[in-house]
Amino acid sequence: MRTVKVDATASTNSYLREFSRSMDLQEEILLWTDHQFAGRGQRGATWESQPFKNLTFSVFKRVRLFPVEKQFYITMAASLAIVELLKEFEIPRLKVKWPNDILAGNRKLCGILIESVVKNGKLDALIIGVGLNVNQTHFERAPQATSLALETKKEFELAQLIKKINPIFEKYVNRITRGDFEQIKVEYEAELFKKDRPALFSNPNGDRFNGMIKGVSEEGKLLLQHEDDAIRKYGLKELKMLY
């Protein structure tokens, strides 16, 4: 996987999308910057990131023959890649908060945003965007955020982290390519935050209810066991975990 660095950009995902259009990319590329000034998160949220303090990167992968119904496996693989990297630094209480936030305890350490590139009505490529809090120690708009520096009391070289990340991501990309879906799902569910433990949720109407996470469906919906023991599926916009 080729690594490319840009000095600054609004969003590594957007940059790669435009770059892929102009260059008709066929190879896998990891593009990173240490100054992303308009990063995006899930549900239209912005990503708070101080310049030269954090790691923001995106991976471009062609997936022309990839089954559309298997797209969530890319999310699972990307989450597992980040968890594998962070375990090397002995970050305590690492978990994946469905669908793809990486937590240390109850605090968000990393976010992932995956976007599809569609051509002629068919899935053509995926762009996997990652924002990892590294050396930032104060967060104004994200009170539940943390960073590698806060968790380890150490500072990190961003370029060295990218060198570690690249082969890990390449490994998980290869696992997806060869169809290692079942094992990836098992590993992802084992890392899920609050799995098999009572948790509080709310729906779009603001109603609160208790449930227990049992896993995810093939299409990436959350499988939630309710107090009546019924297991129901939920999409990203259908509920919010309160923690």
Rank of each mutant, 00 (worst) to 15 (best):
T3N: 02
T9G: 07
Y15W: 15
R17W: 13
E18Q: 12
R21K: 14
L31F: 09
F37Y: 15
G39M: 03
G41L: 04
Q42H: 07
K53N: 12
N54T: 08
K61G: 04
E69M: 06
F72L: 03
A81W: 01
K87F: 06
E88Q: 11
F89Y: 13
F89C: 05
P92E: 04
D101A: 05
G105A: 02
R107Q: 10
R107G: 02
E115V: 08
S116D: 09
N120V: 03
G121A: 03
L123P: 00
A125I: 11
G129K: 01
G131A: 05
L132M: 06
N135P: 11
H138M: 14
E140L: 13
Q144L: 11
T146C: 08
A149L: 06
A159K: 11
I162V: 15
I162K: 02
K164V: 10
F169M: 14
F181I: 08
F181Y: 14
I184F: 07
V186K: 12
A190R: 12
E191L: 14
E191M: 15
L192F: 07
K194M: 13
K195T: 05
D196N: 15
N203H: 07
N205E: 14
G211V: 04
I213A: 01
I213K: 00
V216Q: 00
L223G: 08
L224F: 07
E227N: 06
R232E: 09
L236A: 10
E238W: 04
M241D: 00
